[in-house]
């Protein structure tokens, strides 16, 4: 229930949303064309995409800058702050559903599609007639059409990465406590550590990909094992990248002296996002690597 406020604040007009819409137009057309132009000489799509991304980044800076300014002028009420927080939580919920769809695909493939290809359930004839050689196992290292690959173990890099991400969640939490207790030193140092851990995670993940492509014959197109592996870890990696960037911006703002113990929506949002990314990783580690 909205608490008693005497007056509402309605933000003034802004040109950033329309800039953002145009940015998305460029991204959609650019990405679409770039994908169609894969393997050809043409590069117009890539350029349009780049322009779109630049516009969106500019928009984010501009937009948030306006918001920060307005907030600094004390224009925002506690109610606005709640709106932002709730908005962010719902956005994260939508991201959860996005990952849920990919996890759903993974579960379906493992528990239904592959056994059926091997002749389970009401698909005996599928196995017998269409794929007599096929063996239904997971990880699927040999596809029904006979392509082979190797599975990624969970020991080694993935395990290290798990530790790194978990640690980063803890350090971020300490940074937050520092902020709330107005201990700027604790805030800055722990936030910096978190950013570094994020970067290390990404580097290791890149390393793992290189390993997979160079030495293991595990690629995005290695049947459903490779598909689910790279799509899930890839989208997670993308989110880590975004999260790290967000935290990096927060670090920069912290160093500039922004945020106070009771007003730090942006920091809070980035930290929620980071914890969310962390939880997704745990799911990944469990369902993609270990099981």
């Amino acid at each position: 229930m909205a608490e008693q406020t005497t007056h509402y604040y309605v933000p003034s007009q802004s040109h950033w949303p329309i800039v953002g819409a145009i940015g998305l137009l460029f991204i959609a057309i650019g990405a679409g064309m770039a994908v169609q132009q894969l393997g050809s000489e043409a590069q117009s799509g890539g350029w349009l995409l780049t322009i779109g991304v630049v516009i969106i980044i500019a928009m984010m800076f501009g937009w948030f800058n306006d918001v920060i300014k307005e907030s600094d002028q004390g224009l925002y009420s506690a109610q606005m702050d709640r709106s932002f927080r709730q908005g962010m939580s719902w956005f994260i919920f939508s991201e959860v559903m996005f990952f849920a769809a990919f996890f759903g695909a993974l579960f379906y493939i493992r528990t239904i599609a592959i056994p059926w290809l091997g002749g389970a359930s009401n698909n005996q004839m599928t196995g017998q007639v269409l794929w007599p050689e096929f063996e239904a196992v997971w990880p699927l290292v040999t596809t029904p059409s006979g392509d082979t690959t190797t599975a990624m173990g969970w020991q080694g890099l993935p395990l290290i990465n798990t530790v790194i991400l978990l640690t980063s969640s803890v350090t971020l939490h300490f940074a937050h406590i520092g902020l709330e207790k107005n201990n700027r030193k604790q805030l800055t140092s722990f936030l910096a550590i978190t950013v570094v851990l994020g970067v290390i995670f990404m580097l290791l993940q890149a390393q793992e990909y290189v390993e997979a492509y160079r030495h293991m014959g595990l690629t995005l197109s290695s049947g459903v094992y490779g598909n689910t592996f790279f799509l899930l870890t890839g989208f997670h990696g993308l989110h880590v990248t975004i999260g790290t960037l967000m935290l990096f911006v927060m670090l920069w703002r912290v160093i500039k002296g922004h945020f106070s113990p009771d007003r730090h929506f942006a920091f809070q949002a980035s930290s929620w996002y980071w914890h969310f990314v962390d939880v997704v990783w745990l799911g990944l580690f469990f369902f993609v690597y270990i099981l």
Partner: peptide, 8 residues
């Protein structure tokens, strides 16, 4: 979505 690679 292609059986040949293990999808459906």
């Amino acid at each position: 979505f292609a059986a040949a690679g293990g999808g459906d």
